[in-house]
Design a protein around this nucleic acid. Structure first.
Length: 483
RNA sequence: GGCGCGUUCGUCUAGUGGUCUAGGACGCCGCCCUCUCAAGGCGGAGAUCACGGGUUCGACCCCCGUACGCGCUACCA
């Protein structure tokens, strides 16, 4: 069997789209699973759409996601260059072959004539607007003359009528087109650059790509590519056209309806593990109930045969859940590193917290957060004393007796030397017994006093993390502030 | 309009002719645990398997048609 070589071939229009990420990921998984090569090729044949820095962005987004490629820009390889704009001479060479063979031809039609043609065809209600092969009739000398006179031209694919174009697709199985419905696609543009359709075929062949795994939007133009392979006498790669990623309204996933760039999710605080896991499951599953995957598990289990046919809506709720799942699977030390980074970007950037302190927060909050930043936002009281107290909790838990109760707790705490969590709890239990009231009557006001809110880890966890001095101080403050 | 592809709970999906009175997950609701909030456990609501015809003893699964959705229809990818 031919060795597996796949490619991700984005055009450098700015950023890595999550749909692009999924295409890249499936290519990557397929390559790794089959001990093949994953190559990155940049499809920059449209000079008008080129965005400065886009290639670098693409590569860094790919890398962030953990998709390292074996060949491509920056890393090189034996099949380069990997930027199509640097392969122009190769396209020239191959287009000549096609022209000589009559499978492609020069076309000197002006934009105006083309537009008129289209208008006319629409007026006649022709089933489809196609180029009319007008320039196919040009004689050799006319062509030479035009070229000599520097009349702009394109080169078109010469599609022969009344042919069935049939190809197989791993995901869609058998697909059939009638050549009468295939337009004489422009292969070389008037600026000398190839179109996607031509460059893609030449490059995939030259780069010995074994499997073309790409989005469904390419399915309709695959007959053109097949015609090209056949004309050159090249082996066709195995095709696999992936279902599209959709907006909540089922249209093709786009900006406007939320974030589409991998970078957006990164800055929002999503873990790369969660994004990759989530995107992998959009259109693929192993056939069992497993939903939590690490990259190596995806590689182990992935197969193109189990990719779905229908488009999938990008549902952020499930991504959130997966993010929490992945976060909980991380070690506290891994989280510590991320938390420190997050603190640097927060209002507490100037504070100096010990690793030990932060680690104890992580231990207390790990089950209660979905995002790293929530280790700060969901429990600000660990970083700064409460400025205000949740009104609802005051109404519910604060009575005229409460100040006296709290004073007793404070006095009990203050005498403790080097107390552990259990010591605080014991003292509070004693006070409750002495007062002949339930512990809850003490716990809730205590929680409110030291945290300002009514939710969070066990109150004794908070107390021991904050420490005796700080807790006593906060109780005093609360006694003053809460009337 | 033409061509192509698709259609199972709100969403992601399992399902390859009898095991489906359709399973799981997210989300939602309830209960348990409990000092709160989570996490966890248990349970619930939620899909006439787009619709209509076939084929078959039997169809979510096979065939045909219809509807709807999406994609392509560029000298963009």
């Amino acid at each position: 069997m031919k060795s597996v070589r796949v490619r991700f071939a984005p055009s450098p229009t700015g950023y890595l789209h999550v749909g692009g990420l999924r295409t890249a990921l499936y290519n990557y998984l397929f390559a790794r699973k089959n001990n093949g090569k994953f190559v990155l090729r940049i499809e920059d044949t449209d000079r008008s759409r080129y965005v400065e820095g886009a290639v670098e962005n693409l590569i860094s987004a790919l890398k962030w996601c953990g998709l390292d490629f074996d060949e491509g820009p920056q890393v090189g390889g034996n099949f380069g260059p990997y930027l199509q704009s640097q392969r122009l001479d190769m396209y020239q060479k191959y287009i000549q072959e096609l022209i000589i063979r009559g499978d492609a031809y020069y076309c000197f039609c002006t934009q105006e004539r083309l537009e008129e043609l289209k208008k006319e065809q629409q007026k006649q209600k022709l089933p489809q607007a196609k180029y009319d092969k007008h320039c196919l009739l040009l004689s050799k000398s006319q062509i030479e003359n035009n070229i000599a006179n520097k009349i702009p031209f394109v080169v078109r694919l010469n599609v022969r009528p009344n042919q069935k174009i049939i190809f197989d697709d791993i995901i869609r199985s058998h697909v059939e087109f009638d050549s009468n419905n295939v337009d004489d696609q422009v292969l070389i543009k008037s600026d000398g650059y190839p179109t996607y359709h031509f460059a893609n075929v030449v490059d995939d062949h030259l780069m010995e790509i074994s499997h073309v795994i790409r989005g469904e939007e390419w399915l309709s133009s695959t007959p053109k590519h097949v015609l090209l392979y056949d004309s050159f006498g090249w082996d066709r790669p195995i095709f696999a056209h992936l279902p599209l990623l959709l907006n909540p309204d089922r249209s093709k996933l786009s900006k406007r309806q939320g974030d589409v760039a991998v970078e957006d999710y990164r800055t929002k605080g999503f873990l790369k593990e969660a994004l990759v896991n989530f995107v992998a499951l959009l259109g693929w599953n192993a056939g069992d109930d497993k939903e939590f995957y690490l990259m190596n598990e995806l590689i182990e289990n992935f197969s193109l045969e189990r990719v779905n046919k229908s488009g999938a809506i990008f549902d952020i709720e499930k991504l959130n859940w997966l993010n929490a799942e992945h976060l909980r699977k991380k070690t506290n030390n891994e989280i510590l590193t991320m938390l420190k980074k997050s603190i640097q970007q927060s209002e507490f950037t100037n504070q100096n917290y010990s690793d030990e302190f932060l680690l104890s927060i992580i231990g207390a909050m790990k089950e209660r957060v979905s995002f790293i930043k929530e280790f700060i936002t969901n429990c600000q009281y660990f970083y700064t004393a409460p400025m205000e107290y949740e009104q609802k909790s005051i109404e519910k838990n604060w009575s005229s007796e409460t100040p006296n109760h709290l004073r007793k707790i404070r006095d009990a705490f203050i005498n403790l030397s080097n107390p552990a969590k259990e010591d605080f709890e014991l003292e509070l239990t004693n006070v409750a017994t002495e007062l002949n009231i339930g512990k809850g009557k003490l716990i809730h006001p205590l929680r409110l006093s030291i945290s300002g809110i009514s939710t969070g880890p066990g109150v004794f966890d908070i107390v021991s993390i904050l420490g005796k001095e700080e807790v006593v101080k906060r109780i005093d403050t609360a006694l003053e502030k809460i009337k």
